[in-house]
Amino acid sequence: MAMLDPNVLNPYVLLDPAVAPFLGVIITSVSVVASLLISRYFFRSYTFSGFGYLLGLPVGFAFLGASFVFEMAGVLYIANPILHPAFFWIQMSLQSEALALIALSYYYRNSSGGPGQLMGRNILVTALPLMMVTIPFIVPTAALVAEPYFNYAGLADLSFYMRIFNVAVIAYIFRTTIVSLVRAANIKLLYVPAAFALLWLEQYSLIIAYFDNSVMAFVGSAAARLAGLALFAYIMHSVSSRRKMEIEARKAT
């Protein structure tokens, strides 16, 4: 039996090498298209309204799409000792930054900063978003500066910590969307928390894959990611098309 490499960076290496690139292209294509579609819907809303808090969503989903491209590039350059870890490093930073930016949109929408608030809370309101955005950039950069060559074991461990960060950030978004759902008392709003729950499950499965190099955990994470992004894209599309139908119906009457 072949020994398991304890420092797997890109989990695609767990798959059969004959299947991995083909499967990778399909998963990446669907993920990138869904991410860019979601980004486009939010970008149109941002350009129309100019609401600053919305900007995190189009940028975040565009970053998420880009991170999947770098993940695929890592699969294609699997034998290259420089490019493979380099692409992994970029993918990891982009993905965490993307989730932090998405969380920031939810944070700023729901934070109600005012002059009557306590100083401690004001500091928290300012520091928390700053931390959320800087951690995904500072931590991987610091690791790279500390060891300028790409240390596989170091990167693998770093990816574990970054995934913990991702899980925490997605949990925050999930909680926020659930609160909105309860406040609005509209069951149709359940789809968005469900989509974020699936993205949370993706990160959680990747943590499992980090510990035991389980192919099932990786396949599960890919399925959860595809389902989450597809569900989110479907919600965005249905909201737009439903409005168009309502407007057409109103014009007809």
Partner: peptide, 16 residues
């Protein structure tokens, strides 16, 4: 009016 309706729907649907 159409665009604003769409924006509000999108924001609400996204749980924002």
């Amino acid at each position: 009016i159409e665009q604003y309706d769409q924006l509000i729907n999108l924001i609400e649907s996204a749980g924002l």
